[in-house]
């Protein structure tokens, strides 16, 4: 399909920068437009990586939850067992990957806030979280104004 999604996003950024931005006089609108263009450029890079990120994160989160479950209160451990029994969504089903990710991370949120876990499990949790943050494909692009 041409223009591809990649080509359309790239072209949209170019038009906004070269045609629209020079014609915008209002300082507030100009700042907002600069932020939107920067975010579109970030999305242009990030979109192809989102599904793979979610798939990897679901696997990593499920593995961590399985390790934590024996140390957690029985109701939460049982909820984890049930969640892990579900099969992983198809890699092409972005909505299902997102839904699965939220379900697993909700369980992780409960697990980390519960009773004190052993230091080795705490270390695993933090490693998982730092690793996840480092792989996050979408990032804020700062375009803070320098004058007001």
């Amino acid at each position: 399909m041409r223009p591809s999604v990649d080509e359309q996003l790239h072209g949209t950024c170019r038009i906004l920068e070269e045609v629209v931005a020079p014609a915008v006089a209002d300082p507030y609108a100009r700042t907002i437009l600069a932020g939107l263009i920067a975010n579109l450029r970030m999305l242009h890079q990030a979109i192809p990586a989102v599904a793979a990120f979610l798939q990897h994160d679901n696997q990593a989160c499920a593995k961590l939850l399985a390790e934590l479950a024996p140390a957690l209160p029985p109701p939460l451990a049982e909820a984890i067992v049930q969640a892990l029994a579900h099969s992983e969504p198809e890699p092409t089903d972005s909505a299902a990957l997102e839904q699965r990710n939220q379900a697993l991370r909700e369980l992780l949120a409960q697990a980390v806030c519960g009773e004190a876990l052993a230091p080795d499990l705490q270390a695993k949790i933090k490693r998982h979280m730092i690793e996840r943050a480092s792989r996050m494909p979408m990032r804020y692009v700062p375009t803070a104004p320098t004058t007001s």
């Binding site: 933090k126 979408m138 804020y140």
Partner: peptide, 29 residues
């Protein structure tokens, strides 16, 4: 504060796009 911006953007009330602030996690840990 950044999550507030995300919330307000999704609700259609804020005109700047923020993301989940994952960049803050490592320094906090």
């Amino acid at each position: 504060i950044q999550l507030t911006a995300v919330h307000e953007f999704v609700a259609g009330r804020y005109n700047r796009v923020f993301q989940t602030p994952t960049w803050l996690y490592r320094p906090m840990f």
